[in-house]
Simulated assay, not measured.
Amino acid sequence: MFVQRFSATRRGARLARRLAVHRLDLWGVPYGSPASETVALVVAELAANAALHGCVPGRDFELRLSHDRAAGVVRVEVSDTHPGRPEPPEPGAQPPADAESGRGLLLVEAVATRWGVADRLGPGKTVWAECDFGQCQ
Score class of each variant (00 low, 15 high):
Pro88Ile: 07
Ala110Gly: 10
Val76Ala: 04
Thr81Arg: 13
Pro89Asn: 12
Ala110Ser: 12
Asp60Ile: 02
Asp60Pro: 03
Glu90Gly: 13
Asp60Phe: 05
Arg103Gly: 12
Pro95Cys: 14
His82Gln: 08
Val111Ile: 06
Ser66Thr: 15
Arg85Val: 12
Arg114Gly: 05
Arg69Gly: 01
Pro91Asp: 15
Ala110Gln: 08
Glu100Asp: 15
Ala110Thr: 10
Glu90Met: 10
Arg85Cys: 01
Thr81Lys: 03
Ser79Gln: 05
Gly84Phe: 00
Arg120Tyr: 05
Val111Ala: 04
Gly102Cys: 14
Pro91His: 12
Arg85Tyr: 04
Pro86Ala: 11
Leu121Ile: 06
Asp80Arg: 02
Ala71Asp: 11
Pro89Tyr: 09
Val117Cys: 13
Val111Arg: 00
Val73Lys: 03
Gln94Thr: 14
Ala97Val: 15
Val117Glu: 07
Ala71Met: 08
Glu62Val: 09
Ala110Trp: 03
Thr81Trp: 04
Pro91Gln: 09
His67Leu: 10
Val111Met: 00
Pro88Lys: 10
Leu63Phe: 06
Leu65Thr: 03
Gly102Ile: 11
Ala110Asn: 10
Val108Gln: 05
Val73Leu: 01
Val111Gly: 06
Val117Thr: 13
Asp80Glu: 07
Val74Leu: 04
Pro89Arg: 12
Ala71Lys: 12
Gly72Trp: 08
Val74Gln: 02
Thr81Asp: 14
Asp119Val: 00
Ala110Pro: 01
Ala70Gln: 14
Glu109Thr: 13
Pro96Thr: 14
Val111His: 04
Glu62Asp: 00
Glu109Arg: 14
Arg75Phe: 04
Leu121Trp: 03
Leu63Met: 07
Ala93Val: 13
Val117Tyr: 07
Gln94Trp: 13
Asp119Pro: 04
Val73Ala: 06
Ser79Arg: 08
Gly102His: 12
Asp60Thr: 09
Val117Arg: 05
Glu62Gly: 01
Arg64Ile: 01
Phe61Thr: 01
Leu106Ala: 13
Ala97Tyr: 07
Gly92Leu: 10
Pro96Trp: 14
Arg85Gln: 10
Asp60Leu: 02
Arg114Leu: 05
Arg64Pro: 00
Arg64Ser: 08
Pro83Arg: 10
Arg103Asn: 10
Leu121Pro: 04
Gly92Ala: 14
Asp119Thr: 06
Gly102Tyr: 09
Pro95Arg: 12
Gly72Leu: 08
Pro86Gln: 13
Pro95Asn: 15
Val74Asp: 00
Arg75His: 00
Gly72Gln: 08
Thr113Ser: 13
Thr113Asn: 02
Val76Met: 06
Gly116Gln: 08
Leu121Cys: 05
Ala99Glu: 12
Pro88Phe: 09
Val108Pro: 02
Ala118Gln: 10
Arg64Leu: 02
Asp119Leu: 03
Gly104Ala: 15
Val74Ala: 05
Ser101Met: 11
Val111Thr: 02
Glu109Gln: 15
Glu77Phe: 02
Ala97Gln: 15
